[in-house]
Design a protein around this nucleic acid. Structure first.
Lengths: 156, 156
DNA sequence: TATACCAGCAACCTTGGGTTGCGAAGTTAT
DNA sequence: ATAACTTCGCAACCCAAGGTTGCTGGTATA
């Protein structure tokens, strides 16, 4: 029972963590005030340390006790699902389109200015006020809205 | 030692959780395949259950093992510090200034356009190409750079 | 009253966690 | 080559901690 569940995980994990820190069994034993052979036993799955020592170990390695004692497979099932759903997907899509419209208008305007510059043409278009303000308003307004909605997820 | 650290917490917590579920000691004992007196002992702080049973208990009550074994005070100290430090603070500051310069130029230009519109003045300034492109380039370029650096933190 | 339920104390037993002893294997220095 | 040192696993042993059984007291209900 014990072996099937988590002992292999605990043994491996404590061994890996010890090596990650570059400690020998002797050094870890000193830190935990136990004999070196106790460390050896834990790492070979012969027994578990006492509760108090488990808590100390989790502090020493910066792991939760669950991470120490449970199998990776078990922990995976407990991971919170990352693919959360946006609260207002359609509204965000609208803001994205408006932003694109602003970008398009701006691109048209700047493109014409560039053509005039490079070719010596003097293509003009009326509504200078429109061409200077509306693209910016669209881009800024929609950008703010879309960014705001990006961080809102459905409650679970 | 043991009593000072977490035994009171474990004993209280397991008792509270059992009652929260509306179970008697007998009922919990059946679920865990132990005697009723074992439950009594745990709840009165006389001893701890074995590791296997602790894991089963944490599943049964939907708590982490850390929550079972550690004091509330201890868990608080483990909260990850949110105020992480940026990897390149000075570079990000430079990008922020460049962005501000672009915004300033754009504001000047749009401000003049607005004044012309509202007062009927015809204040003009040369370099139409400059006034149309440079603010945008500054804003977009610096905005991208600053946003990129916003997510880079120093390794711990 | 009797019965059922609940939970704590105590004696007892077993087993699991920790210690000590020993030795093998690997590495380094002379 | 040998000696010294480091690292770690196996085994015997011990004891305390965890679990069981027995008993009892308190409370609620019929």
């Amino acid at each position: 029972m014990r072996k099937e569940i988590d002992e292999m995980n605990f043994a491996e994990r404590i061994k890996n963590e010890r090596k990650k820190q570059g400690w020998s069994q002797d050094e870890l034993a000193e830190k935990l005030y136990v004999s070196r052979q106790s460390i050896s036993k834990w790492e070979n799955g012969q027994n578990y340390p006492s509760i108090e020592i488990i808590i100390t170990i989790s502090d020493l390695f910066g792991l939760t006790i669950d991470e120490l004692l449970r199998s990776d497979e078990h922990l995976k099932q407990k991971v919170i699902k990352d693919s959360r759903q946006l609260a207002h997907p359609k509204l965000k899509l609208l803001f994205d389109f408006i932003f694109l419209a602003g970008v398009t208008l701006l691109a048209i305007k700047l493109g014409l200015l560039l053509v005039n510059k490079l070719t010596g043409f003097e293509i003009t278009f009326g509504g200078g006020f429109f061409w200077n303000f509306v693209p910016l308003i669209l881009m800024i307004g929609a950008g703010i809205g879309s960014d705001d909605l990006k961080d809102k997820y459905k409650a679970e």
